[in-house]
């Protein structure tokens, strides 16, 4: 009973974080929500008796993909600010 309640809670959290990730108006928040989504996915894999995937999801899905996304976001921001200062595209 307890575990089933936990599963439902986790599923709701998964759907909510995915929705916030795609619908959020702010890109920074969207990427952070994606990393949260990845960590929740890792939990879901653990619940599905798939510890191998849980490990990979945490390291690759949330970790590496998150780092790539944050770095790309930083690069896009830096260029945008550079353009605003000089008033033209670099």
């Amino acid at each position: 009973m307890m575990t089933l309640a936990f599963d439902w809670l986790l599923v709701v959290a998964l759907l909510w974080s995915a929705w916030r990730c795609l619908a959020s108006a702010d890109l920074n928040r969207a990427v952070v929500m994606f990393i949260v989504f990845g960590l929740l996915m890792a939990l879901a894999w653990a619940r599905l008796d798939a510890p191998d995937i849980a490990l990979a999801e945490a390291a690759i899905g949330a970790g590496l993909t998150g780092a790539l996304l944050l770095d790309a976001l930083g690069a896009l921001r830096a260029r945008r600010e550079g353009r605003d200062v000089h008033g033209e595209a670099p």
Binding site: D52, I60, L64
Partner: peptide
């Protein structure tokens, strides 16, 4: 048990990042 080349490689990569 759970683990293997992919997880190990991912951990190494995380270290480099």
């Amino acid at each position: 048990r759970p683990g293997g080349a992919f997880q190990a490689g991912a951990v190494l990569a995380a270290g480099a990042v």
